[in-house]
Amino acid sequence: MSADVPLIACEGLVKRFGERQVLGPVDLALAAGDRLALLGPNGAGKTTLLSLLAGSAEASAGTVERPDAREIGVVPQRPALYRRLSARENLELFARLARVPEPEAELAELAAAVALGDALDHPVERLSIGQVQRVNVAIGLLGRPLVVLLDEPTAALDPGHRLALWSMLERVSERGGAFAFATQNVEEARLAADTVLVLVDGRAAYAGPQEAFWQEAGAVEAAGGHERAFVAFVERVRSAA
């Protein structure tokens, strides 16, 4: 997708569960500064693709070129935190487990980024959904990974929390990294991504610059225009199949 040297790439990636093929084949490459949105309806294979890219699951076919595991940050959709530990304790624990080179400095940076104030020392179970999700993302950013993969990171977040979260992710691309996130929210994809990969029933229906996609989908600048265009695009793909 990018002309630069990819930080992470896959070719002919396929995932099957038994006889059933749930994904692929998918080709993908993320280079420095890339911001990719994985768009698709429920069950399209977005989470599966992220798992394969992260190395959390084995592909049935195809290849993935990825950097060292420490250079990949993963943010699952459901927060992966110890609820009885505070946000700070969670950050410290995962930083030390991952052998982050300068944990103190990075923890200070991430603590500022999550902007929890005093709540940083409250047990996670007492934080709001938005605060928890910011901590969840912050842990994914520990060690300053080159590639960050996020699975619907803003689901259930209000607009304020969403903006705070995207500003955290902006720093990844600013320092020469790349991130990819799965979402069903068309407006969010437009806001946070440069390129999109549209998955429909496991197959890549579009991969390329975002503007070109909306042109192809026939979106118009009107209220809900892009969302309607996306739904129509998905239906056209399914009809053609």
């Binding site: 959390s56 993963v74 992966a80 935190l81 052998r99």
Partner: peptide
């Protein structure tokens, strides 16, 4: 239950 297993494994545990 805390959904941290994958994260622990990624951290080298």
């Amino acid at each position: 239950d805390e959904n941290v297993l994958a994260r622990l494994l990624r951290a080298g545990v």
